[in-house]
């Protein structure tokens, strides 16, 4: 990639995630994965690793692979270890003259496979320092099994395991701050991004992650029209609202140095992000104003903390 991002040039590259996969219409994961893979230089080979997820069952349903590159899926909780195994094999075979040329190693897993069940595997792989990229496409719940809460699900969100009832008001806990936990691994590159606008942010961060030596981590917001309960055509709007309300700030941490990638011209109230989504519908009922207030307080607090990091 030349230094200046050019959408026109990038979209002319041959696709690496093909059509014909079985992700739902309007799925954010398809957008995120093709967006990340687009950052690979055209001539470079990659091995794509995948945790069990919506993405996996949809993109490699026998005998149909949607990947132009080599691909491996093994289980739900081990995609980082799997990627490190491929990388280890590459190092060994390269040393013995059995493979040549650059190969990039990119893992995709959902938030369940990353924040929860795959967390140990991820932490281990990052600590060992494999030359790999781990991409979490974060849709904030276990969508493949039918929208159950994960540690990434935001507070108050209704899911099938945090349903709304006469007593229950959705998820009780706040979202785990995984990106910050990855920063604490002292790896060369950690970034939080989302598919917005002309994809410059996502593309540049994916490029940095792929072409920075060592373990790199991307957390990418990936709206799910079914799980979040919004009209599927509204993917771009929902994502933009997440960013402009600072619910999902865009930032990167290079060698421990924090950079804020985007400051909203006008920081929108969090309810602008919550209102279009069915999973937060109960928050707008009479008597539940405190929920919106507390959600706003939490976002503000996290945003202030991020600003402290990035201005330091």
């Amino acid at each position: 990639m030349s230094k200046i991002y050019n959408l026109k040039r990038e979209v002319e590259k041959p696709v690496r995630l093909t059509g014909g996969h079985r992700l739902c219409a309007g799925c954010g994961a398809g957008v995120v994965v093709s967006g990340v893979l687009r950052a690979l230089d055209k001539e470079d080979r990659a091995v794509v690793v995948n945790a069990t997820s919506c993405l996996e069952v949809s993109t490699f349903m026998y005998p149909y692979t949607a990947y132009m590159d080599s691909y491996i899926h093994s289980a739900f909780e081990n995609s980082a270890a799997t990627c490190s195994g491929v990388e280890a094999a590459y190092n060994a075979l390269k040393r013995r003259g059995k493979v040549d040329g650059a190969v990039k190693f990119i893992t995709f897993a959902g938030d369940g496979g990353t924040y929860d069940i795959g967390f140990q595997s991820l932490s281990g792989a990052m600590e060992r320092g494999h030359d790999m990229v781990y991409v979490c496409y974060d849709n904030e719940a276990y969508m493949n099994t039918g929208i159950q809460r994960s540690s990434s699900t935001p507070r108050f969100a209704g899911t099938t395991t945090t349903p709304i009832g006469s007593v229950g008001q959705g998820k009780k806990q706040n979202k785990k701050d995984l990106t910050e936990i990855l920063v604490a691994h002292n790896i060369p590159y950690v970034a939080q991004t989302a598919p917005i606008g002309n994809f410059k942010d996502l593309h540049t961060k994916a490029y940095n992650a792929i072409y920075t030596e060592g373990p790199c981590f991307l957390n990418v917001l990936s709206p799910c029209p079914r799980g979040w309960d919004y009209p599927m055509a509204k993917l771009a709007e929902i994502t933009k609202l997440a960013v402009d309300t600072c619910v999902w700030p865009l930032f990167e941490v290079e060698e421990g140095v924090w950079h804020l990638s985007y400051t909203p011209k006008k920081k929108l109230p969090v309810e602008d992000f919550l209102r279009p989504q069915g999973r937060f519908r109960h928050m707008f009922q009479k008597g539940n104003e405190w929920m919106i207030k507390e959600a706003q307080q939490y976002v503000d607090q996290k945003w202030e903390r991020l600003l402290e990091h990035t201005s330091a």
Binding site: E12, G19, G20, H21, G26, V31, R38, P195
Partner: peptide
């Protein structure tokens, strides 16, 4: 890049018509 199904082909700087075999009509 917003097409989840890679159903918008591009060639020589031009966006071509939809790949209707793969477009799921998400809008």
């Amino acid at each position: 890049p917003f097409c989840p199904d890679s159903a918008i082909p591009v060639k020589d700087g031009k966006r071509l018509d939809f790949d209707y075999m793969h477009c799921k009509g998400c809008g």
